[in-house]
Computed example of a mutant assay.
Amino acid sequence: MLNEFKQLKEEYPDRVLIASIMEEYNKDAWQELIERVEATGVDALEINFSCPHGMPERKMGAAVGQDCMLLEEVCGWINEKATVPVWAKMTPNITDISQPARVALKSGCEGVSAINTIMSVMGIDLNTLRPEPCVEGYSTPGGYSARAVHPIALGKVMQIAKMMKTEFGNTDCSLSGIGGVETGGDAAEFILLGANTVQVCTGVMMHGYGLVNKLCAELKDFMRKHNFSSIEDFRGVSLQYFTTHTDLVKRQQQAIRQRKAVRKGLQSDKEWTGDGFVKESESMVSN
């Protein structure tokens, strides 16, 4: 992989190359890995604090992403050594994803990425009674991705973006949205929720690299439709429309009262007409 990083930078020196890396819970190992990866010429590092595959069993991956004290410690090791910008990749397998995101940013990371895959069991073979997929009849919970996780990813990104806006304001902290991106509309949704960038993985694996050109074209179509000239014109615009369940109930009740107040119903049976019966009936409905 180190050779591939180096080759990419040599072939595309004007492009940004971000290395997504992970290591076990070991300071020396982390710092050695960072040194070796940076030597290839990468422009930034994404630290995978969220992989659900094997790494949690070794006190890393999602194990760190779910433990804010461990996360703060490891972020300290990394930012002590790194000379390029660092993003922390967040796990969705947690109740409040804004907590580890906050810790990562306060510990020196320039930004956070969200989300990684969601822990799941794909299913059980009702004939063999074995889990699927399996290796020699055995399995382990794994990470679920692609279109199915998109709504969950949007919710997690929204939580992080609101926290970042409230607590970090106009700093240089950034947010990268991940999860089920296959169209320009999918990408636009993440940006509307505050993401600076959007990542695609499973979509490219399923549809090929040509998907990126299609995605970019669709995103530009969306921007032209709304007369946006840059990403910053609409980044985070939709955050203002999120509120609490209690507030939603109040808004609904207020709207009903307002509609009733302006409703022009018939004042007496004498006002009914044959030709206007349908419209006159609709005018009597309160909602």
Rank of each mutant, 00 (worst) to 15 (best):
A146Y: 15
A146K: 11
R147A: 15
R147F: 14
A148V: 15
A148Y: 15
A148P: 03
A148D: 13
H150E: 06
H150K: 15
H150G: 03
P151M: 02
P151Y: 00
P151E: 07
I152T: 12
A153N: 05
L154A: 02
L154N: 05
G155I: 04
G155P: 07
K156H: 13
K156I: 13
V157H: 14
V157I: 10
M158K: 13
Q159V: 03
Q159F: 03
I160C: 10
A161R: 02
A161E: 09
K162I: 13
K162C: 12
K162N: 14
K162M: 14
K162E: 15
K162P: 11
M163A: 11
M163E: 10
M163G: 07
M163V: 10
M163K: 09
M164F: 10
M164H: 11
M164D: 12
K165E: 12
K165F: 07
T166H: 08
T166L: 14
E167Y: 07
E167S: 12
F168H: 02
F168C: 08
F168E: 05
F168Y: 07
F168A: 10
N170V: 05
N170F: 06
N170D: 15
T171E: 04
T171A: 09
T171W: 10
T171R: 11
T171D: 08
D172Y: 07
D172G: 09
D172Q: 14
C173L: 11
C173M: 11
S174D: 13
S174I: 13
S174C: 15
L175R: 03
L175C: 02
S176L: 15
S176N: 14
S176W: 10
G177D: 03
G177P: 04
I178Y: 11
I178E: 06
I178Q: 07
G179E: 09
G179K: 03
G179D: 06
V181Y: 00
V181A: 00
V181H: 00
E182A: 12
E182I: 10
E182P: 13
T183Q: 05
T183D: 12
T183H: 12
G184T: 04
G184M: 02
G185A: 02
D186R: 04
A188N: 12
A188E: 10
A188R: 15
A188K: 13
E189N: 08
E189L: 09
F190Q: 06
F190K: 11
L192E: 08
L192G: 08
L192N: 09
L193C: 08
A195V: 05
A195H: 02
A195L: 05
N196E: 07
N196A: 01
T197H: 02
V198P: 06
V198A: 05
Q199R: 07
Q199H: 06
V200R: 03
V200G: 00
C201Q: 00
C201S: 07
C201I: 03
T202L: 02
T202I: 01
T202A: 05
T202R: 04
G203K: 00
G203W: 01
V204H: 00
V204F: 00
V204M: 04
V204L: 05
M205W: 01
M205A: 13
M206N: 08
M206A: 08
H207S: 09
G208W: 03
G208S: 05
